[in-house]
């Protein structure tokens, strides 16, 4: 009984430290919650259908069209609202997929070394020498359609290389430390050491990476859309930017078309960064990490 209670208060302490007393994380989570709500309630918030083409093209913002009308006569505000759905889901799901693969491969390659590590790193190296974006373009051309699922898989499955490499190089250093030897001496198994001993010790790197890959996934989605490889029936922020570029929004002074999607992507990515970074700082502090010079 006593033990349980203590554990509870421990996890509460962690929660308190990482979230409740962490302004940066709170701001970040606030932003994410905001966009998630927009995504969920898109049909309620958006005044029109995102694909509806019934308005006067190039109309500047007005009370009827808060962000104006694009070159095809579609309401831009509605598109931004609906675009939230695609961008958020691609970012988070692809980011998770990436992190999962990246952490596992990185740890395994770094700690295990030997044959397994060698083979894993060979695979990573091979894929690293092929430019990822070009690889994605080929895959996008190869797959019969670029629906949201394919988009997530392509982005998620190809973005983990850097993460794996970075985690591996940290693990490599960690694996040679005393505490790992100690764990080995205690008879702990490989997986146990990897996840129980090494992983907690390189959490800053892992967090920084995870946060990066979510943002990275959103940016990749935007870039693929910009290059015209996304699914055009999926309205995402990147796709909006792509169409605004192709239709010379600059000429029409259509800042209301070019700016909002970009700011949305940046703000959402920013929120993930904030959370990740604040966790990292707290963690470093815990370890007495900050050396003041």
């Amino acid at each position: 009984m006593k033990k349980e209670k203590k554990q509870k208060s421990d996890s509460y302490l962690v929660l308190e430290k990482y979230l409740l007393k962490n302004t940066k994380a709170k701001i970040g989570i606030g932003i994410i919650v905001f966009f998630t709500l927009v995504a969920v309630f898109a049909p309620v918030i958006a005044p029109y259908e995102a694909t509806q083409m019934d308005f006067v093209p190039w109309e500047a913002p007005s009370s009827e069209h808060w962000l104006g009308v694009n070159s095809y006569g579609q309401d831009i505000f509605s598109q931004v609202v609906y675009g939230t759905r695609v961008t958020i889901s691609v970012g988070i799901l692809a980011g998770l997929l990436t992190s999962f693969i990246g952490i596992f491969v990185g740890l395994l390659a770094g700690y295990k070394g030997g044959k397994t590590g060698e083979i894993l790193m060979r695979i990573v190296d091979v894929f690293l020498v092929i430019p990822t974006l070009a690889f994605m373009i080929i895959l996008a051309a190869f797959l019969p359609s670029m629906g949201i699922v394919n988009l997530i898989i392509i982005i998620g499955a190809l973005n983990w290389l850097w993460m794996a490499r970075s985690i591996r190089s940290q693990t490599l250093s960690e694996a040679r430390r005393e505490y790992v030897d100690a764990a080995k001496a205690q008879g702990m198994g490989t997986i146990e050491i990897m996840f129980k001993e090494i992983l907690p010790n390189i959490i800053p790197v892992v967090t920084a990476n995870m946060v990066m890959v979510v943002t990275q996934a959103m940016l990749t989605e935007a870039t693929l859309s910009f290059l015209g490889l996304g699914d055009p029936s999926l309205i995402s922020w990147g796709q909006m930017l792509s169409v605004s570029f192709d239709n010379n929004a600059i000429l029409y002074n259509a800042w209301y078309w070019m700016l909002p999607p970009g700011f949305c992507i940046a703000t959402l990515g920013f929120s993930f960064m904030l959370i990740g970074n604040s966790f990292l700082d707290i963690y470093a502090n815990d370890r007495g990490g900050a050396v003041s010079l």
Partner: peptide, 18 residues
């Protein structure tokens, strides 16, 4: 940096050209 890092590559280009 966090903010800039989350900006799409091509968008920066578009704004700079503009």
């Amino acid at each position: 940096s966090f903010y800039i890092q989350s900006i799409p590559y091509f968008w920066v280009g578009m704004l700079i050209v503009m």
